[in-house]
Design a binder for these strands. Structure first.
Length: 493
DNA sequence: GTTAGGG
DNA sequence: CCCTAAC
């Protein structure tokens, strides 16, 4: 079993234009040297570019061409060097492009393993390679001083309605039209898909402040930075070499926490069969530490037994994580634990398999990755098996009393989805197979529908008996048990 | 405003 | 899908 999912956001088409006002403002501060246009790259392209560069370098340079120690057995993807720092520095040479400074410990000696966790004894000039940015460049993200980012300010930024589309797609970018865009899920999704299919340019939410910008992309992923026309770092200040981004749900408390951690790049990994992960990468991170961070997060989620590799798939602009079970270990089942049918109905057990990891406190609710995968499917057929699967999983996890969350989780165009879908599904599951029409739904799914429906109905009834005033608040008990994150933790700040 | 159920 | 009750 191979689990692979790219860091979808930011790679492969996310481009980051700046608002005209923000660009002008940054220019005045000398932060922007080149005009921001639609060729800019997203924050996540940074790592992708670095990864691609590292990989290219590894391929072209015999001294750097090596096999990672912790490369996944059985995978053909290239693994990045473990000790190569992801540090990005501006290039001081006048005419050259921005460069990625990569400490190449391997070049110090052929016997040193790239994935060794040991730091080089001596790190001198020769241990640093300057990799020119040939094709797509990279972005450099600057941050204001920590003291200048306050919760209040962040809150204000996140509450702003500065939605815009890329200039090429929207001629009225200089107008205030983007302010009128509703940042709702449906809008964002549709626009994202449309633009991605046409121009590879998604919806962005952006507001600049100080020397940084907050981009709210898609489902509330926020990144900060300036970008020039080729995605290269555009800040001349070397002190801006710190990389930081933030990934979180909109209106999430995690936003504050993530933003308050200066000097880290926080990534949200949309994974397949793996819940969303929040990866914090300090500006001194190495590829190895990145891999380890991902590995730790995934291990915490899946219970271990996985090997993480970073793959490139022969693309400069993509960085993927490949997860495989260790040969000596059998990976835990990925699906069975999700189903409430596995649970005794009188014992409330965690419906989420995702234990509170070190990053979970700063994370929104764990996300069934298969649903996230489904969300990416363009124009899913109404009520297809895949959709039913997503719906069932969402209900199993959240319960029938939280339809709003369920549909947001399960459906792409969630705005227009109603409770009727689940209702019809329950009805379909109850009637005989001969009476069913339309696309056949696997009996296994229908069984899960009935089980989940029965389970959550029972839970709901229990709650109503226990606490009549707290009807429909089944999540309260769940939260008491620490099994499920209460949405209220993340909203309303 | 959301959920759930009936029609 | 619409309507309505309950929350």
């Amino acid at each position: 079993m191979v689990l692979q999912k790219r860091l979808d956001y930011g790679f492969n088409g996310y481009q980051v234009p700046a608002t005209p006002r923000a660009t002008r403002s940054a220019r005045r501060r000398g932060a922007i040297r080149k005009r921001v246009d639609d060729n800019s790259m997203g924050a996540f392209d940074l790592l992708a570019t670095i990864a691609g560069k590292l990989l290219l370098e590894g391929e072209s340079s015999p001294a750097s061409s090596h096999t990672s120690k912790d490369q996944c057995a059985g995978t053909k993807e290239n693994c990045l060097d473990g000790d190569k720092p992801l540090k990005v520095e501006p290039c001081d040479q006048g005419s050259c492009d921005r460069r990625i400074l990569v400490s190449d410990h391997i070049s110090q000696g052929p016997n040193q393993s790239s994935c060794s966790k040991e730091s080089p004894v001596h790190q001198n000039e020769s241990s640093v390679m300057q990799l020119p940015i040939a094709r797509r460049g990279l972005l450099l993200i600057c941050w204001p001083a920590p003291s200048r980012i306050g919760d209040r300010r962040i809150r204000k930024i996140l509450a702003s309605k500065y939605w815009k589309v890329a200039p090429k797609l929207k001629d009225d970018i200089h107008s205030n039209s983007y302010r009128d865009q509703k940042p709702n899920y449906h809008n964002r999704k549709n626009c994202y898909k449309r633009q991605r299919s046409q121009m590879n340019i998604p919806f962005k939410k952006r507001k600049l402040f100080d020397r940084s910008a907050v981009l709210n992309i898609d489902e509330g992923i926020s990144r900060e930075g300036f970008f020039d026309s080729r995605g290269k770092g555009i800040t001349g200040d070397a002190s801006c070499s710190k990389i930081q981004g933030a990934a979180m749900k909109s209106s999430s408390l995690a936003v504050q926490q993530l933003h308050s951690n200066q000097g880290v790049l926080t990534l949200r990994i949309k994974s397949f069969r793996v819940p969303e992960l929040f990866i914090e990468i300090p500006d001194t991170a190495t590829v190895g530490s990145l891999k380890k961070t991902v590995m730790d997060a995934v291990t915490a989620v899946l219970g271990g037994g996985l090997c993480t590799g970073i793959s490139q798939d022969n693309q400069l602009d993509s960085l993927g994580f490949t997860l495989e079970p260790n040969s000596s270990q059998t990976p835990p089942p990925l699906c069975s634990g999700d189903s409430p049918c596995m649970l005794p109905c009188d014992v409330l057990q965690p419906l989420t398999r995702y234990p509170a990891g070190p990053t979970s406190e700063a994370s929104p609710e764990p996300h069934p990755a298969s649903l996230g995968n489904f969300i990416e499917t363009p124009n899913p057929r109404p009520f297809s098996v895949a959709e039913v699967e997503a719906l069932v999983q969402a209900v199993e996890k959240l319960g029938t009393g939280r339809w709003r969350d369920v549909k947001l989780r399960a459906f792409d165009n969630a705005k227009h989805r109603t409770y009727d879908k689940w209702k019809t599904l329950v009805h379909t599951a109850r009637i005989s197979p001969q009476q069913r029409r339309g696309e056949p739904v696997p009996q296994e799914l229908l069984d899960r529908v009935l089980t989940a429906h029965a389970y959550w109905s029972q839970q709901q009834a229990k709650q109503q008996l226990k606490q009549p005033r707290l009807a429909f608040s089944s999540e309260i008990e769940l939260e008491k048990g620490g099994h499920m994150l209460n949405k209220k933790r993340f909203i309303g700040f």
